[in-house]
Computed example of a mutant assay.
Amino acid sequence: MLEKPSEESSLVIRKIRAVSETQLLERLKTTAFFQKQTPFFGRGVNIGNTLEAPREGDWGPRLKAKHLDLIQQAGFDSVRVPVRWSSHASNTAPYTISPTFMKRVRWVVDEALRRDLKVMINIHHYEGLYANPEQHSDRFLALWRQIADEFEGAPPELVFEVLNEPHDNLDAGKWNRLLADALPIIREKHPERTIVVGPANFNSIDALQFMTLPRDRSNLVATFHYYSPFQFTHQGAGWLGDESKQWKGTTWIGTPEQQRAVRNDLDRALRWSVENEIPIYLGEFGAYQEADIDSRNQWTRFVADEAIERRIGIAYWEFYSGFGVYDPKKQRWHEGLRDAILGK
């Protein structure tokens, strides 16, 4: 069923379990697994629209050392650095990554680590892989061999995320098989480094249940992304077409119903984490700049604090572009948004 068979399929549900939201969270908090957890990667921010743009600078500023200074001085614990390796590697075997681009990624990693920021790098926006997994799987694995070689011996504060938001034709079944191939390649040079894995369908909470985990889950963390309610967080987002314009004016004021929806979603992610005994990380959440700033601040603070209460680490999307917490033109923070992420 996960691989879209041409013939009709049926699904038999043998057991349905209902638990009230308050009872579920309190039950999860009593488990031994939960009690030994801390929020993985703390409170962080994505360096989005930078190294995962087709070319750095296409979608926003080029990252500079002063930007990392600002992030560190503000009190963030970590940065997630999305990287579009696929635009900087040859299309034929051995699929060599551009030395210039590799050097650039290395600079970002080293400079962030030097500022005592934990760093996560991934493979991001590999559009060919999403569209045609069979054609691009060898190239994807070759990219990871090169990344693993380049960062062999790096401090443990550097973490690898295997792939951002598998989707399209890279469905759960195909992604599970590719993930099973990728992990041993990374582990060959990084047997103890933390590796982050996320489910298909854009790292959605609903798809966590379909992700196949290896037997050895040591140094493994799962991730999900959260942009709900979507008509609020993506109102006016030009890449979504005219429909998003119709969402303009959607607010989030923290009504009991709005809060309950967020709590229920995060509880589902936490329940999956506890039942599978694997830490979980909110790798992206954010609201686009077209939403009113008061709603953005309230939604961001609520999601961040509720996640941290569940010992789920967070990374806001993102630093200085369309969802940004920092205005690069005015060279100043959106202070309410920054404080909301940091819990101040």
Rank of each mutant, 00 (worst) to 15 (best):
164 N>V: 00
317 W>L: 00
212 T>G: 08
1 M>Q: 12
306 E>P: 00
242 D>H: 10
338 R>G: 14
202 F>C: 12
258 Q>M: 03
56 E>Y: 00
164 N>Q: 07
95 Y>D: 04
108 V>P: 03
68 L>R: 08
24 L>D: 08
189 K>D: 09
238 G>F: 11
16 I>Y: 14
29 K>C: 05
332 R>P: 02
146 Q>V: 00
71 I>L: 10
247 W>P: 02
39 P>L: 06
125 H>N: 08
284 E>D: 08
171 D>V: 12
178 L>D: 00
72 Q>I: 02
58 D>G: 06
336 G>E: 01
96 T>Q: 11
303 V>G: 03
250 T>D: 00
213 L>K: 08
141 L>M: 04
242 D>W: 08
223 T>G: 04
115 R>K: 12
158 L>D: 00
67 H>V: 00
169 N>M: 11
311 R>E: 13
295 S>W: 03
317 W>Y: 04
105 V>M: 14
191 P>S: 04
55 R>I: 13
248 K>V: 01
62 R>W: 09
165 E>F: 08
309 E>T: 05
144 W>D: 03
152 E>S: 11
271 R>Q: 14
67 H>Y: 08
243 E>H: 05
59 W>V: 03
331 Q>H: 06
288 Y>M: 01
156 P>V: 06
307 A>S: 15
230 F>Y: 13
107 W>M: 07
184 P>A: 11
291 A>K: 03
113 L>V: 11
206 D>S: 14
12 V>G: 12
127 E>M: 13
227 Y>N: 06
237 A>R: 06
1 M>P: 11
12 V>N: 13
127 E>K: 11
298 Q>M: 14
122 N>I: 02
299 W>Q: 01
96 T>W: 09
318 E>P: 01
230 F>W: 13
121 I>D: 01
289 Q>R: 14
8 E>D: 12
220 L>Y: 02
9 S>P: 11
47 I>A: 02
18 A>G: 12
86 S>N: 12
8 E>Q: 12
106 R>H: 10
186 I>Q: 05
126 Y>L: 11
226 Y>T: 01
69 D>L: 10
247 W>K: 05
185 I>V: 15
25 L>P: 07
48 G>Q: 02
254 G>H: 00
303 V>C: 01
234 H>L: 07
72 Q>Y: 11
73 Q>S: 09
223 T>N: 12
77 D>W: 00
70 L>T: 06
105 V>N: 11
164 N>C: 09
79 V>G: 08
238 G>A: 13
344 K>Y: 12
341 I>G: 03
244 S>L: 03
38 T>G: 14
260 R>E: 02
50 T>E: 03
236 G>C: 04
118 K>M: 12
307 A>W: 05
301 R>Q: 15
340 A>R: 01
210 F>G: 09
157 E>P: 07
325 V>A: 13
147 I>Q: 15
14 R>G: 12
33 F>P: 01
328 P>S: 06
283 G>F: 01
204 S>P: 09
194 T>C: 13
289 Q>H: 13
243 E>S: 07
